[in-house]
Structure formats: C-alpha cells, structure tokens
C-alpha cells in the first residue's frame, strides 16, 4: 500500500474538507488548514485508505453546532460552568441549592428538551449583581441578587424556565464560531485515520478552549440577540403553563427587575434587552400583567428555603 507522509495526507484532507466547505467561507478553510498543521507534526506516515477516509471526513465536516453529541455538549457545559463560577463564586447553602434544584429540575422535565446528557443542575452564585447564566447541557446559575428580585416561587420559576429555554434551544452552542466546529470535527475525524496521539489531543483541547471562550464571551460580555432572548421567554411561558405555574410570573419578575437594575451596570442590564422591552414582546402571548394569587404553602416554603438569600 502506498504510503504518504503525514503532512501530505493532512494537506489532502484539508483541501477536500475545504472543498466541501466552500459555502461556509474562507475562515472555515483557514481553520481546517490550521488544525491540520497543528495535528500534523511528526505523527508518522499514513496509508492511502486512511487518506480516503479522511477525505470523506473532510466532506462530512460541513456541519453545525447540531453535530456535537449531547455528551460533547455536556463536557462543554461543565467547563463553561467552571468559567462562570470564576465571575461569581458559588453560594454554598445546601437548603437553598436543594430547593432551586427541586424547582428547576421539575420545570426542565416539562420542557421541550427534558433529556440532556447529564441532566439539568442549578447553582446559586454569591453576588449581589442581578444575573443568570445557562451553560450548554443544562448547567444553570443564578445570582443571589437575581433571586432577591423574585417575590415568590412563580417568579423564581420564571427565571429558571427562561434559562432552561436557552439550554433547550442550544443557544450556548450557537455562540461557538463555525471555524471551531469545523476544526473540532476534523480533528475528531482524524481519530479514524490513526490512533489519537498527544498532538491531536492538544489540537482538540485548543479548539475546546476557544469554543469555551466563544460561549463565555457571549454569556458574560455580549449577551444573546434580542431574538434568542425572546425565544427563551416564550419557551419559559410554555414550561410554566405546562407545570402549573402562572406565566404571569415572568411579567412579575421582569417588572421587579426593571425597578432594580442600574442602567449602564455590567450585569444583566448589559447582556439582556431591557425588561420593559421583554414585557412588551411577551404581552401578545400571555396577556397584560394581572396580579396572581399564590397558595400559602407555596409562599411559605419559598420564604423558608430561599427568600432569605
């Protein structure tokens, strides 16, 4: 069997990958070439059949964020979560975290995406700022400042349901640049051609790190587009209704937030459309705010388990 050098092979695969990707643009092509170069250092010769298989992989790499398996999404989510905890540390009070997981996981079970690889998990963060983050796969974080904006369980349910909406619609994964997705899937394809060596692992880890940065940059600094925020709000209204909470909890929470956020601050105000705009967008779906009643037992447990944070 004809042997090709590793570099020849990778160049061939890169070209073919690029050929299959013309429609996705030059940046993607550059990424393929780059990853090939990183992965190609001194890993020895490969056979022609392996070249063919990599060619096919190259053609197959024209994929999107949807190509990540739930398992890969889970690993992305764990690391995004660890980064989010860099911004605000965890608030480690078992009673409050247990309560928020009871509420949140029940809501997630009723969402359009109840099954993620490792399941949904919720964590309170020790900060007075008003903020929340949804990492891929279902790792959801809410600051004490945001919990304090919620006057009852229905309002807190609305906050969590909105974040579940982001996970359900894979908004975090959408923030990953196409070039990284191509790089990652091409490197993964190389596993087929040869045993996965240290160089490929290094290349994949680099792409992993860049993907994490894409997501955290969006979650913490830039925020999602108005369209995606609105999608999460509508998903939240559906979830709340299915479980038996008042979707009016969303309007209650947004009204509170409007009075508490400081214009120009670096938290929620920076990464989200204004609460008033979100209320306006929701009203055609769930109607204008009407004060809702809350069974006493529900309000009492809210006060006992979490209102004190």
């Amino acid at each position: 069997m004809k042997e090709t050098t590793r570099r020849d092979f990778l160049t061939a695969a890169g070209t073919c990958a690029a050929a299959g990707l013309l429609f996705t643009g030059c940046k993607t092509m550059e990424a393929v070439t780059q990853i090939m170069e990183v992965a190609s250092v001194d890993t020895g010769p490969v056979t022609s059949s392996q070249v063919q298989s990599a060619v096919k992989v190259g053609q197959a790499v024209a994929k999107t964020f949807e190509s990540f398996t739930p398992e890969q999404e889970y690993y992305i989510g764990r690391t995004v979560g660890a980064m989010v905890l860099e911004k605000y540390p965890p608030f480690n009070q078992t009673i409050a975290n247990t309560y928020i997981n009871m509420l949140g996981q029940t809501l997630a079970a009723a969402s359009d995406r109840p099954d993620t690889f490792g399941g949904y998990r919720f964590q309170i963060q020790d900060s007075d700022e008003i903020n929340a983050f949804a990492a891929p796969g279902g790792f959801i974080f809410v600051t004490r400042g945001l919990v304090r904006c919620c006057k009852d369980e229905d309002a807190l349910a609305a906050v969590l349901a909105h974040e579940i909406g982001h996970v359900q619609e894979k908004h975090g994964l959408r923030a990953i640049k196409q070039s990284r997705i191509t790089s990652a899937l091409t490197t993964i394809g190389l596993e087929g051609a040869k045993q996965f060596g240290g160089k490929e692992l290094a290349a994949l880890t680099q792409t992993f790190g860049e993907s994490i940065t894409d997501i955290t940059q969006t979650l913490i600094v830039n925020g999602y587009s108005r369209t995606l925020e609105s999608q999460a709000d509508l998903a939240a209204a559906d979830i709340l209704t299915r479980v038996g909470y008042s979707p009016q909890g969303l309007l209650e929470m947004l009204t509170q937030m409007q009075t508490r956020i400081k214009p120009g601050s670096l938290d929620f105000a920076r990464t989200h459309p204004s609460p008033l705009d979100r209320i306006k967008a929701l009203e055609p779906e769930i109607g204008k705010f009407i004060p809702y009643s809350q069974p006493r037992v529900r309000l009492e447990r809210f006060i006992k388990y979490i209102a004190w944070v």
């Binding site: 398992e71 690993y75 690391t79 596993e191 692992l201 994949l204 880890t205 992993f208």
Partner: peptide
C-alpha cells in the same frame, strides 16, 4: 469521543 474526559483533563 471528541470533547471528552481526556480533553477536559488536559484543559
């Protein structure tokens, strides 16, 4: 495969 325990470990 892909983004997995080994990748997380290295990161």
């Amino acid at each position: 495969k892909g983004f997995n325990e080994s990748v997380e470990g290295r990161f």
